[in-house]
């Protein structure tokens, strides 16, 4: 369970996140959406204490985040963050083993159990055969799967993802988010694609200029009125086998409204 209450974050004199709240209950997948620069990633960083909020409180299972020490936090919250590539040759197995580091003392060797956890995590994401490949040589989809495997090996019951579907082919986008949904782990995910958000998140929080303008189920948040105001785009919502999906059109294409069967 992750709860953020009235969180504000600033760089220098400017507030980038203003009094945002979020609640992700046990096993829920909460999507953070909003236009570029709306403060999604910044807000997410406060949820794993990489940024200290100017004001407000973040709690993990009702315990304030600042009471948790680094490794203690890492045992309970796993993160897939945006990372710049490294020149150093790191294998996939080493990358995933790193997820075991918070569970081991500084000088203790990784045990057989750690290696089993890595093998199991890699199998879970369908990447067991990549174990001895160099991470840098993987495709974008394979890399994201390996990063998710690291969070699994970490065995944390909270998962934070920052635009995990970036640079992924459409199939991998769906594969990844479906897998995340099946983990049963409390998850907060920053997403750009509103249809992915609608399909795979149980709840959404929409940010605009650092403020939460809506939160609730996808149906409550992704309304045509709000999307037109926040994103400046027209939307026709459809229900596809129980999941909300959106079809977008630019304002100037809308001279003849109601051309489809969409009912609002």
């Amino acid at each position: 369970m992750i709860t953020a209450t009235d969180v504000s974050v600033g760089y220098g004199g400017k507030l980038v996140v203003k009094s945002v709240g979020l609640h992700a209950g046990q096993g829920e997948v909460v999507g953070l959406i909003g236009p570029n620069g709306s403060g999604k990633s910044t807000f997410l960083r406060t949820l794993y204490a990489a940024l200290r909020p100017r004001a407000g409180l973040v709690t993990l299972d009702a315990q304030p985040l600042e009471e948790l020490r680094g490794t203690e936090l890492a045992r309970r919250v796993a993160v897939v963050a945006q990372e710049t590539p490294t020149d150093l040759p790191v294998t996939v197995a080493d990358m995933v083993l790193l997820g075991r580091a918070p569970h081991r003392k500084a000088l203790a060797a990784f045990t057989r159990e750690d290696h089993q956890a890595v093998a199991a995590a890699l199998s879970r994401v369908g990447a067991r055969d990549l174990a001895d490949r160099r991470y840098a040589t993987l495709s974008g989809g394979e890399k994201q799967r390996v990063l998710v495997a690291r969070t699994l090996a970490q065995q944390a019951d909270h998962l934070l993802l920052d635009e995990p579907t970036n640079h992924l082919d459409i199939r991998y986008q769906h594969e990844l988010l479906r897998m995340v949904g099946q983990l049963g782990v409390t998850t907060v995910v920053v997403l750009h694609d509103l249809n992915l958000a609608a399909r795979y998140c149980t709840k959404l929080v929409m940010l605009e200029n650092g403020q939460a303008v809506a939160s609730g189920t996808p149906e409550e948040v992704l309304t045509p009125e709000l999307l037109l105001r926040v994103y400046g785009i027209h939307v026709e919502p459809f229900s596809v086998r129980g999941a909300l999906q959106l079809v977008f059109s630019m304002a100037d294409e809308h001279s003849e409204p109601q051309s489809t069967a969409a009912v609002r």
């Binding site: 089993q116 199991a120 699994l152 998140c201 596809v240 129980g242 999941a243």
Partner: peptide, 21 residues
């Protein structure tokens, strides 16, 4: 296409096998 949200099966925790890399 697609499957309804929320109907996915519950979590399969890590299944440890004899595989220890």
């Amino acid at each position: 296409l697609g499957e309804p949200r929320g109907a996915t099966p519950p979590a399969a925790p890590l299944v440890f096998t004899g595989d220890d890399l």
